[in-house]
Structures are given as C-alpha cells and as structure tokens.
Amino acid sequence: MNHVELTGVGKSYGGFRALAGVDLCLGPGVTGLLGPNGAGKTTLLRIVATSIAADSGEVRLLGRDLRGGHAELTDIRRRLGYLPQELGYPGDMSVFGFVEYVAVLKEWDDRRARHHEVRRVLELVGLADLATKRISRLSGGQRRRVGLAQSLLGSPRLLVLDEPTTGLDPAQRATLRRTLGVVAQDATVLLSTHQTEDVAALCERVVVLDGGTVRFDGSVVDMVATAAGRVWHSDHEVPDARVSWRTGTGRHRIVGGSPPPGAEAAEPTLEDAYLLMLGPDALASPA
C-alpha cells in the first residue's frame, strides 16, 4: 500500500514556482530526497507533512484525501511524524517537557501512557539520560535528536524528516540510521539530507528534485549505475570534466567529460551520480 500518493502537485510562492507537476508514490521503506537549494525539497516535505497545502494536484496520504475535510486531516496527523528543517525550542523547557508537550498535541492524554511513550522515544534517540536537562543547554546534535524524538511519538506510519542528520556527528548518524532502519520496517520514511552517504546507507529509493520537478526517481543502485564508466582517477585535471576535485591522495577525481590519458576508472558513488545529474551547482550547494 502506498502511504504517499502525489499527482501533479504544484506550489508557488508569489512568482516563484517551488513545485511543478510532481508525481510520487511511496510505500513502506526509506526514501531520500536530494536536490540543490531551492529545488523544492522542503516545500514537498511540508506538503506531505500537512504543514502547507498544495496549490494544484492531488495529495493522498495514508489512504486519505487531504481535501476530504477536517476528520480526514486529523486522521492523517494521528499517524504522522514530522521533523521540520528548523525546530524552535523554548529555552526553559526540559527535554522531557518538550517531548511531552508535543505528545499532548498528538493527543496522548493519559499521563501514564504519555510518560511511557516519551521515555520510549528518548531512549530510541539516546537521550534518556538527558531527560531533565534544559534544551538550551544541549549541543546542536542533541537538539536535533530531541526533534527526532518528538517525530517518533506514537510510532507513526508516515515519518517526514527534513534534514535529520544536520549537526549530528558520525556516531550519532550511525545511531540514526539504525533507528530509522527499524522504524521503516512498517512505516514510510521520507527524508531530505545533504549527505549523499546517508542516502546511500539508509534509503532504498532516492528522488532527485531540481527546479521543482522530479529529475530522478528510482533505487539507489539504479542512480549509482547512471555514473558507471563516467568516473576516473587521474594525475591531471581535465578541463571538460563535469566536476573534478583533488583528493587526499593527491590525485584528481574526474566525474563526467572525457577520460584523460592515463586515467583509471573509479567505482562510482551516489554523490558522483548526483553531481553528474545536476552539475557543478550541486557541488556548490549539495542540499
């Protein structure tokens, strides 16, 4: 069953077209959303999170039509978890207090069940020890995990995460991957990130947005395959390369263009495929 069904979805802000005719169907599993700044990723995630309405097209979430009225909308939101790109935290709230506040917004009215659920999600993100600490005293990565914890309340069937790995160190990112791996066994997870390695490690499927339209929609393996035979290591820079940079070994990694003399074929990565698809602009702002 598809938990997310978008058909011809469009959204504009004034004269700026953020999304145009986006078609997308997502079922259980983790889907990564990639694209340069301004590609429409956050707009798409906000529409799927029911934070904003699309200007055109049809949006069906968890089998319900968003235009169906208040009851349908509330039913969707009861089974939805959302981590916005930026999440404000009142400075004097404790970790437990903040997550409990969101739990009440999610209609966890019974105190005992609510507290149990808050402890469960804090345990999931590794913050159980910091439950009584004020959020203002946490590091950026810890705050991001508080945000992630609130999104996991109630084991949502649809989880929308806007750049969940921002501010996390490698160990925390590895923990997040494990957590999302478990969550995605039953739920549909849609996340955006500027870390292509996170997408490669976490996602079965990748969607690339550019200029408000879908440039690629397929498996990670298929996307990596688009770069096969188009990535080399060379001692020299190549002027017609799509993108190239000097690596730590002193050699140049050449992505796209024609192979330079003496170049060795390199194993392509998701980042290579992404750069080939979007060019140097993506390298400058890979979000």
């Binding site: 999170a49 029911t50 934070s51 509330t74 939101r77 009861r78 939805l80 959302y82 916005p84 930026e86 999440l87 404000g88 935290y89 009142p90 969101v102 009440v104 917004l105 999610k106 209609e107 609130q150």
Partner: peptide, 12 residues
C-alpha cells in the same frame, strides 16, 4: 515559526 510548526501538523 519553528516551534509553532509542530502545532500545525499535530492532530490537536
């Protein structure tokens, strides 16, 4: 506002 965004998408 970031803190209010959660209220918008919550069933409450």
């Amino acid at each position: 506002e970031p803190f209010e965004a959660l209220a918008v998408t919550a069933p409450y």
